[in-house]
Design a protein around this nucleic acid. Structure first.
Lengths: 349, 349
DNA sequence: GCGCAGTGCACAAACGATTGGGCGGAGTCG
DNA sequence: CGACTCCGCCCAATCGTTTGTGCACTGCGC
């Protein structure tokens, strides 16, 4: 269709502008240029105002951008961070990543993001790739709750921060999922629901565990413990939610409400509910988690617990940066918020 | 919660292993090591089998990974490519990106991905950032159909490839969207639909334009031209589809079918249909585009035109790589495929 | 007039990898 | 036995940046 570029190459990748280019034009040594152009913070041995001004003008004219490889080689700082997520096609993690990238960009860092697919071998492989790229640190959005898989990083002394999923003893920024589970429970309790079921997510994730845990604790404390057979593990996607819901809805009496630990799983639950000729929010209430934009737009708008996904990403990067720069830091727990919509209503019996 | 790391730093980021480390252990010069470890393709001036073997063993033992910065500095090749997408939180582009990353990884490249938000200023800013990082090329998933915004790349002589959206005269790998629009039209025509509407996407994208164009052409050729007021631009997300559908459904007689150029927009259309007390697939048929995984899982499974998103990403990278390596290349058009589901049925009057 | 401090630069050595060139030694051939 | 070839390896320069140190000059105080 287009064919190879003809050989009268229009722009032969013109010679890059380096410190030396500028130094020659300004009639000074590269050292001087380097010092002038360095961030003001470390401005020792400064030049005369006129020289500095002249150098800055030339640099701006030529559109000088320091070569990150030269810099990295010399300083042993790549200004690169790796980001590991289960799947980028998962809207939740994609949003978290946007937050990471946002904060990283502001701090002069670039990010590599890659999918681990929640697979042990692949995670190791991708981590290895990131380290080979000499990243300054790693943001992990896919950590299993037992903290396994962190060994390689710890061993190499590479800073890391967990986001979305936490693991005890490791730096993390997560949503307060226990509190979030409770919010969902309190909402359903207030609506009169006593006989409920939980689509609990993957048991190796703190998100699944904590949200389920908070929910169950609140029901137990209210005097309505949820029996084990009403709790079922699931994937975090639509199919996972649907499958779990089908199992939960087909055994014994119908629960009056279902809590799914993820919005997409909740969408799957609604599908299963509808398949049985029922309407979400009437015969069976459904609560999700995360409040993805889609949730508000569904035919039956989804009641859900909003988690600050973007914010988690931003703070996760900040936590990582604090470690990289040797500043004090601490893990964070961000507040969830209940958003009541049409998919929940008074318990019907 | 965790506090700063205590000062008995467990692993002081142990000294990295370089060519010199290996050379000293093997009792040879770094040059020799470098040549032994270079990809076999350029194996000139090779060493004796014994030396090579010894070097390779030491390298493997020490887990040597060449420093990409040193290499980039010397070779002027960073093995880095940039990827620009409108939004990573858009499942379609996230999937395309997975394809790019997949192919890039196999070829020894790493990728920076970043959101342009379809905003001119932001796109320029992000492109600039990518160039500052010295990428070897750029994959563009957000190109406007008029090819504007490509100036900076052309001017700098940086190779690029368009994916998902094409622009005449620029290298691209896209779905044959014209054919895809026709597929949707033929499906509806076969079901007896004559009075249809189109949710057309953004007019600055080839995806919106071509899918709409193919659809309209097929209806016109069948003798049932679609009047202008039945075609409405829209965003590519649920909200955009819903808004466009509300406008289309509220003027004049109800169309018997709606074609949305994107699955999420189609979900919005289904929401609007339902809001009017109608059922998708009965009173109003709905066709989407892309076949995202969610489409099959919806309460009313969505009829849609499948586009090879992952494949587009992989081939897009291959197209870029061919340019980087100076091999011949050409743009590609991948075949779409109709997937009929419950959201379409015979025309009802 | 001399010493001294301070200013404004320059010099040079790294960081890790690649690569053209050179140099001994062994093998080949006449 | 000498010349030539080729093998196997080393030398040194280079990419662009940062940074510790040194040097010349100015101006000041005594």
């Amino acid at each position: 269709m287009d064919g190879p570029a003809d050989d009268t190459d229009p722009s032969p990748r013109r010679a890059p502008v380096t410190l030396r280019t500028i130094a020659e034009l300004a009639g000074v040594h590269v050292t001087t240029v380097s010092r002038v152009l360095a961030p003001p913070a470390q401005a020792v041995r400064t030049s005369s105002p006129e020289t500095a001004q002249r150098i800055r003008e030339i640099a701006a004219d030529l559109g000088y951008r320091p070569d990150p490889h030269g810099r990295a080689l010399r300083t042993n700082r790549s200004h690169l961070v790796g980001v590991l997520v289960p799947r980028l096609a998962d809207l939740v993690l994609a949003t978290v990543y946007e937050g990471v990238e946002d904060a990283a960009g502001r701090a002069g860092y670039s990010t590599f993001v890659t999918n681990s697919q929640d697979d042990v071998a692949r995670r190791a492989d991708r981590t290895d790739m990131l380290l080979a790229r000499r990243v300054d640190g790693v943001v992990l959005g896919d950590a299993p709750v037992d903290g396994s898989s962190l060994g390689l990083l710890v061993e190499r002394g590479v800073p890391y921060a967990l986001v979305s999923r936490r693991a005890p003893g490791h730096p993390s920024v997560t949503c307060d999922d226990l509190a979030g589970g409770r919010l969902a429970a309190e909402h359903l309790l207030a609506l009169g629901h006593r006989d409920v079921a939980v689509v609990a997510g993957e048991p190796y994730t703190s998100t699944g565990l904590d949200r389920t845990g908070g929910f169950l604790a609140a029901f137990a404390e209210a005097g309505h413990p949820v029996p084990d057979h009403r709790v079922r593990r699931s994937g975090f996607d639509v199919r996972g939610g649907r499958e779990a819901a089908e199992a939960l809805l087909s055994t014994g009496p119908l629960p009056t409400a279902v809590f799914a630990v993820n919005d997409f799983a909740a969408i799957g639950v609604m599908g299963a509910v509808r398949d049985r000729g029922l309407t979400p929010g009437r015969e069976v209430s459904v609560v999700g988690f995360n409040d993805v934009p889609l949730a508000a737009e569904l035919p039956v708008a989804l009641t859900t617990v909003r988690s600050p996904m973007h914010e988690m990403g931003r703070r996760g990067f900040a936590l990582l940066l604090a470690q990289i720069e040797g500043r004090p830091w601490s893990s964070e727990l961000l507040d969830p918020e209940l958003v009541a919509r049409a998919s929940t209503g008074p318990a019907q019996r």
